[in-house]
Design a protein around this nucleic acid. Structure first.
Lengths: 148, 148
DNA sequence: GCTTGACCTCAAGTTAGGTTGAGCTTGTAG
DNA sequence: CTACAAGCTCAACCTAACTTGAGGTCAAGC
């Protein structure tokens, strides 16, 4: 009773809600893997669905593909990830996610609350401080005053 | 004692931590405003710092510039925004931010918890369901099965 | 009064994350 | 056995969000 059939790229597209071209793209970026049939067509094991689901959610909250790929490197290459494997990935992201959650909360609440600072004194503003923390942690190529 | 001096683009760049070119860019996108000196140089009022701070934070959590611009349209054009003005903006975003916060929490916690679903039954997986909600709400140009 | 650094505009280039299209192959249903 | 939907590759195109560069102006110090 063929229990775990492999999926074609089209099936994965339908079930995951992303375009075939995007799946090709994710594969090129090393986010998902497939093997090929004798006729050179991709076949996916079912855990690809979970991977794709995680990719979409992570992207939605602002994690770039490169970051997702990095996180996925903690997953095993040649067997279906276990509970423990996903667990590891989760904890690898925990700090980053906690950070983002608190940013969001501050944006949601602080946007109102922060007004207390008058925002003429931007240096003491919680929003501003949050910003500092961000740039300090160096998420983007922030070049404030490079000498030239 | 010249209380509220206007800022040059360079000063805004240093104080806000974004490049001059980015400030030009935000201005072109209608996110910030300046007036010009007789010599055609930009001058900013201090509330631009708050705007830029909010732009950066909002971007960091995945809100595109166009969305920020839309939100900013609730702010008054020709006077410094008051507590009430910022308040409005905040509530305009509240739902979206609440959504994102819960997504993040599910990614952080669910990534571990969700394992219970075995994820072979992807349809019942909380992650997957979250995804469905997203695509249903139509955040991106998701075209699953357009007829062609 | 001239030099130097901060500004200005406008066009072109860059990275991320995909989509679209052409041209060719596979596999399945009648 | 043949049609035709689904796949494949590769190159080109697209939007967002900026940066870089060329070529020219403005203003503050010596």
């Amino acid at each position: 009773m063929a229990p775990v059939r492999e999926l074609t790229v089209g099936q994965v597209a339908v079930r995951s809600g992303v375009a075939v071209s995007a799946l090709h793209f994710y594969e090129a970026r090393g986010l998902i893997r497939s093997h090929r049939t004798s006729g050179n067509q991709r076949r996916y094991s079912r855990d690809v669905l979970r991977r794709v689901a995680i990719i979409r959610v992570a992207q939605e909250v602002g994690i770039p593909l490169a970051g997702i790929a990095r996180a996925f490197q903690s997953l095993p290459e040649e067997r279906t990830p276990t509970r423990e494997d996903w667990n590891l990935l989760s904890t690898a992201w925990r700090d980053e996610l906690d950070q983002k959650i608190s940013q969001l909360r501050k944006l949601r609440d602080g946007l109102t609350d922060c007004i207390g600072c008058g925002c003429m004194s931007i240096d003491k503003c919680p929003l501003r401080n949050k910003e500092d923390r961000l740039s300090a942690q160096g998420s983007g190529a922030r070049r404030l005053l490079v000498e030239r």
